[in-house]
Write a protein that binds this DNA or RNA. Structure first.
Lengths: 232, 232
DNA sequence: AGAATTATTATGTACATACATAAAATCATT
DNA sequence: AATGATTTTATGTATGTACATAATAATTCT
């Protein structure tokens, strides 16, 4: 019997995935422990561990100490979405990027905004801008910046660089929340995007934090037809 | 000098993140190599490697052999979205799940569908169903199943179990594509969801494959107001 | 029987060492 | 100076051993 050599963790991972897909290991099944698999595959336990850990991260395996490793009953597909700069997104598609500042003002935010950012109702920096791809409207950016956290934003005009880009370079964040939804274009959004009033638009809302301090809240409204795609 | 003990990879990771956030290591900077960091932190190189690898996976570091590790110039935020069963999604929020089959038929798909699934224009199984949360319409499921890949689907009525759930249990897939977008509700969708015609609805399109064979193409149309949320 | 304690076990990880690999840097050659 | 071969170097990973940790199983005590 010529035992195939599973000598690196990728190979072991492929074999594990094959067995799951081929239903040799069925959903809910307890699979052999690391030590046994290591012996079977002719490699070290650490190698098996690395492979199984990676598969578990993708959601196909459930692992618990002492209880062992079992094939997930209801595998939760995990879609990873790369949130890059809008400029990069457009340039990556070989299109020309354009940016246009619509308004910049210091004003008191609506309760909904100041609540989300958890700041007392002081005046904040509000930006409205338009991103263009090949001169066509691509997305409207509506942003509030917490000037208590990022005071340097007050001395930036934002007429050539987007809030998006300036903040990434000047205001680090530790974590954040993001939400995707659909909305009907408001009058202002429709005007900027050149689409009918109440057209269905794709919206991304993002809120970022630097430790306990809120940094910015941004709403991106994409022109009709926009899709956010990824692989599973 | 009492050197703090960074004795496990999580602690090392936290320190690395701290230095990046504190701009001790600035975007674009080359950071010390693994061996040096291991000495500084008083741990093994493998421990530093695990920490740096994890941070790199999150997009904050760029690593290349021989070239070393540097802080990402434009960190690409990665949002991971868990795609679970609609039933689980609803039950996880403590709501009652309901399911209603609208139609089930064998028919020749429109060119757009058969093209995406890369099958000759044979008859395919088409399902239309409604998912409910606390008896209120939650999402419309419009699904095409490739009966060449999943012949057993032909003997399932789908009147009590959704295509979503049945396929997960009976038709494994190796990979897939997913797209998020906004659309105006069609007449039929508006009727089922109980919303105005052309209301802005959130849409998820998914296409799954088992190796080279297409499995299913599904379009989920969510009731107005639906949000898909995650953390950054 | 039920509760508290202890033993067992599978995963999780740290470490030292060794070698693989990719890419940059250097050197030799034309 | 351009080209090609060689060396160097930082990351990538495999291995054996050791111990940590969490959760289950078994045991003891009340």
């Amino acid at each position: 019997m010529n035992r195939p050599a599973f000598r690196n963790w990728q190979t072991v991972q492929e074999e594990v995935l094959r067995r799951i897909h081929a239903r040799e290991w069925k959903p809910g099944d307890l699979i052999p422990n690391e030590a046994d698999l290591a012996e079977e595959f002719g490699c070290a336990r650490a190698t098996v561990n690395r492979a199984l850990r990676t598969v578990a991260e993708s959601g196909l395996l459930d692992r618990r100490r002492k209880a062992g490793t079992r094939v997930a009953l209801q595998p939760v597909a995990k879609a990873t979405i790369d949130i890059s700069l809008i400029r990069q997104e457009i340039e990556a598609r070989g299109q020309k990027y354009g940016y246009q500042l619509i308004s910049r003002s210091l004003q008191e935010p609506p309760a909904q905004i100041s609540g989300a950012l958890q700041v007392p109702t002081t005046r904040m920096l509000h930006l409205s801008a338009l991103h263009l791809a090949n001169d066509a409207p691509y997305a409207v950016e509506d942003r509030w910046i917490n000037t208590a956290t990022v005071p340097t934003a007050l001395s930036e005009t934002f007429d050539t660089i987007s809030g998006n880009e300036w903040l990434l370079a000047n205001a680090p964040y530790t974590h954040g929340e993001i939400a995707f939804s659909a909305a009907a274009a408001t009058k202002e959004e429709a005007r900027l995007l050149g689409c009918p009033l109440h057209a269905a638009v794709f919206v991304i809302d993002r809120l970022t934090w630097d430790h306990a301090a809120s940094v910015t809240k941004v709403r991106l409204i994409f022109a009709p037809g926009h899709q956010l795609r990824t692989t599973l």
